[in-house]
Nucleic acid binder design. Sequence first.
DNA 1: GGCAGTCAAGTACGC
DNA 2: GCGTACTTGACTGCC
Length: 312
Amino acid sequence: MKIGYPCINRSVQCSGSKTFRLASYSEARLKETVANNLSCLERIISYNAERGILFFRVSSDIVPFASHPVCVFGWQGHFRGGLERIGARIRAHRMRISMHPDQFTLINSHDEEIYDRSVRELRYHCELLDLCGLDRTAKVQIHVGGVYGDKPASMDRFVRRYARLGDAVRRRLVIENDDRLYTVSDCLELHARTGVPVLLDVFHREINPDGLSLKESFKKTAATWLKRDGLPMVDYSSQLKGARPGSHAVALDPRRFKKFLADSRPADFDLMLEIKDKEKSALRAIRIAAGDPRLRAFKKGLTKSCRASSMS
DNA sequence: GGCAGTCAAGTACGC
DNA sequence: GCGTACTTGACTGCC
């Protein structure tokens, strides 16, 4: 088990997801922003590595407007060196990386143009991970998409559209159960029809249940990840008190998290904490999980002998 | 410098 | 049909 947080680190004095308005777009602005974002990402990776935070979600905003027609600049070549350097650092620390395009990425949309835009967005995410030299265990997670008043038809459309995605996208793409539309069971059905791995979001599962117990959900989603995909990824959060259902908590609730660790045994997975105070909660979670054999087993993996054996 | 409105993109839902 | 939430930050123009 590796534990991590998404996109933003509030302790490092920089942002790796700086962007700008479309109206301000220029090649100079893009170069300047991407250079800043990569430099900051490198600092965040170092921060995480020094503290044992070995799972991180890279922001989609590293290259603003990368999939937009306005962007004709060859950022891939221009920033190749920087991306390779960051990738080498990630690999050296055996970190797990994910990315999560936002809700506008919909491969089951009725609208062919929305599908095309979504494919461009997915290609951008995968290309970034490819340029970092990360293997297929670095995943790009999306939700299934819209229901459009007819869930079976929308799931059929997902299956057909998934088959049209290129290998470069399919090798990284995973789907996640969401808080309103598609349950864990829906995602499992899509896995059965496409082979796409299912990322379990335990908080969304609570809000949008389907009758499967937590243990069954762990077991069935874990079975959708092949060895080449790496350990299953799991998203974790808890309800922000007093807010509408689905709002993420500001800070980790230690008691609740301890119970989650106990309830999730013996499943092993990499855990993304979707909690608003980001790295603070990740550090707290790592301290709480310190006695958990799943985390301890990973620490052993850092020793030279284990590293050598894992490469064999 | 501080503030508030607004930001590429889509869908679902409440009014 | 319109406004809002989504996850939320931070860009941007205005004072």
